[in-house]
Structures are given as C-alpha cells and as structure tokens.
Design a protein around this nucleic acid. Structure first.
Lengths: 199, 199
DNA sequence: TAGATTTGCTTAACGGTGTTAGATTATTTA
DNA sequence: TAAATAATCTAACACCGTTAAGCAAATCTA
C-alpha cells in the first residue's frame, strides 16, 4: 500500500512539470506566447488537467514568482557570505541581484513587472521580503551617523534598488545595447551611494 | 464641394475618438481590459471599423506611445525654460519627467513597458529621442572636466535615467506606498548625482 | 433622373485564448 | 467480478484580434 506515496510523488512531478513547461515556453517564445494549451501540449496532457494543480493561469505565474524570490534570496545571501566588510558585501549583493536579473530574465520580468502583462495580485508574498531584509541589514551597518531618522535606512535602500532596477528595466525593455557600459554605470552608482551614504 | 474637407475632418475626429476611447478604457480598467470590441462599443461602431484607421491593435498602442513622447518632451522643455542654471534646469527636468509618469501613468507604462504586455516593436521612433536630447545637452553643460571620455556623458545620463525610472517602476508596480518619501529619494538622488557628476 | 459605382458600416466567420461541465476511461476497492 | 473512485478527455462558453463578404445608403456618371 505504498502506492499512495508513489502517486503523491507522481502528482508532485506533474506539478513541477507544469511549471517547468511554462518557463520553457516563456524562454523560447516570450511571456506573450504562454498559454494553458501549450503547457498541456508540452506535458502531454490536455489543458483542463492543469486546473487540478493550479487554481488558474495566474496561479502558475504566482508560483513561478515565488520560486524566483527564493532563488534571488539564495544568491544574495551567498554573495553576502562570501564577503567580509559591509562595503564589499553590499556591492557583491547588488551585483548578485543584477546577475540574477539577467540569468533569470523571465523570472525577473515576472517578479518586477518589466514589460509584462498580468499580475496585480502580487500582494502579500512573504518570499518577496527575504532579500529585502538581507539588503536592509547590511545598509544599516554602513550608516554611522548618530541618530539616523526613522526612514533614513529605508530611503537609502530604495535609492539602491531604484537605480539598479531602473538600469535592469531599461536594459530588458531596450534589449540592452552596451553591456560593458552598463556594468560600469552599475558599479559606479553602487560605490557612489556607499561613499555618500551618510549624507 | 467643400464636403471633402468636412468628411476628412470627420475621419480625423473618429481617429482621435478611437485613441481617446482606448486611453479611457485603460484608465478605467487597466491595459489588460483593452480590446478592439470595447473601443468600438465606446465610439458606437463595430470592431472592424477600427482597422480603417489603424493597422491593428499595436498601431493604436504605437500612436498612444508617440503622443506620450510628445507630451513628455513638451513638459521637459518647459521645465528647462523656466530655469536658468544647468543645475536647477536638470533638477526641474527630471522632476517634470517624474510628474509626467504619474500624471500620465498609463502612457508611461506603455512607453517604458512597466507591467505591460505588448510592444517589442518600439524600434525606431524619432519622438522617443526628443527628451533624450534635451537631457543630454544639460548634463553635458555640468561636466567641467577637461577631456571627458567618450561615453562619459552617456553614462551620467543613464545613471539619472535609471534611478528615476527605477523609482517610478517600483512605485507603479508596487502601487506606491509613501509618496513623500519617494519625492525625497528622488530629489536626494538628483542632487547627489549632480554634486559628484565629475567624479 | 436612372443606373453604376463608390463609401460606410455590419454580420459572420476563423483560429486563438482562459476556463468549466459532463462524459469517458482507467484504476482501485470490496 | 462488480461497484466506486480517480484520472483524463471532449465539448462547450465567452471572450480575443482579425479578415472576408455583403448590404445599404450616398455619390457620381450618363
């Protein structure tokens, strides 16, 4: 009677296959081409069975978003743990963020709504805050002034996030022209903000 | 026989009505809800008529994008002309950019692919470069070092653009939480970059 | 003015989408 | 083996962008 577990495992496999198929289609043809019937084709089923694993199409996207945040947090944490000083940690962490965006371009688009459809329903996802906290902590360490205003750290964090997300968005939408220049802008900006973080 | 002109004017009206209807639907229900049949309903015609005025749905979006760039350039130019020093010009121009993004939220989403579907075909649109040039000129004035590297101005421009576009994107996607804080981040960032523009 | 032609607009359709209900087939249980 | 249950599919609905065909009114031509 161990078949219960076997079947359970098979179901989990199918669920994973759906997500894999979806991501594969997006990688091959873009978000616009993703359809329930195409996913079904790829996993050799018909469309309605997907609804036994996910509430609807949005549910698939939501799960992919979740996976994205988990990978991102893992990468950022690794970058932090490989460096010692807060300065080098912060730089490495933002570069990890940057690398994630291009290594998992499709996930990044989904997570941050760059040239995408969908979403709206990205409300309370705890996984989305994983990497937020990591960044926040390191930034706080760099602030040496006596009594920072309440939203001071928050503002610095948003400044970092904005410039890097902005650069990424511009590159993803405009199909990134000069990769080398962008790397320079990125590093210059990071160092600039770190340098004057107490202003 | 002045009826030729009258008819011509009516046709131009209908074309404008289509664009207005489209934008109105988007403002009321979001980009996802925009459909040819809904536009037709709003202008009290049936869908196929629209194809006498635009090649396809993309054509409507493209024209709205064009209009967006024209408004943006006008706003930025006005901001520049209301200020004297390059420093205050630049700040006012970026704030004008910022204001445009929130005053014409839907157009900005369309122009820069923030949480949108479509596009790809944003290739050569001359109107898109109108405001680019304005910014570029003023930034160049602020650079005082002797022989700036060839891509120096370009890099500074991208730095500005990135942080502001990043902030806007984050606010549009995350439904902007603290408007006041964002204004502060924006101004701080602009002044920070101006301050160290020759680094 | 009568007929021919052009114009403006609609209906109907095609192939696609997300999604649901019902029927069908396969598997498990008694 | 028979009944019950699970797994899967077919068919359909309402929508989408888009195109082709047809109708009816206005216009032009004789």
């Amino acid at each position: 009677m161990g078949s219960k577990e076997r079947i359970q495992r098979l179901k989990e496999d199918t669920r994973a296959n759906i997500l894999d198929a979806a991501l594969q289609i997006v990688k091959e043809e873009g978000w616009q081409a993703l359809s329930m019937r195409k996913i079904a084709d790829k996993i050799e089923y018909t469309a309605p069975i997907i609804y036994e694993y996910f509430l609807n199409k949005e549910g698939i996207l939501l799960e992919l978003t979740r996976q994205g945040y988990i990978i991102l947090a893992k990468d950022i944490r690794a970058a932090r743990d490989e460096n010692k000083t807060p300065e080098s940690q912060l730089e490495a962490m933002w570069i990890a963020y940057w690398d994630f965006a291009f290594q998992h371009k499709e996930l990044y688009q989904l997570m941050y709504g760059v040239d995408m459809n969908c979403c709206e329903l990205k409300k309370s996802m705890p996984e989305a805050e994983l990497s937020d906290d990591l960044m926040y902590d390191v930034i706080a360490k760099l602030i040496t002034i006596e009594k920072p205003a309440e939203d001071f750290v928050c503002r610095k964090y948003y400044t970092f996030w904005s410039i890097i997300h902005g650069l990424i968005s511009i590159n993803l939408v405009n199909k990134g022209r000069d990769a080398e220049m962008n790397q320079r802008i990125l590093k210059d900006a990071i160092r600039g903000i770190i340098k004057y973080i107490n202003d």
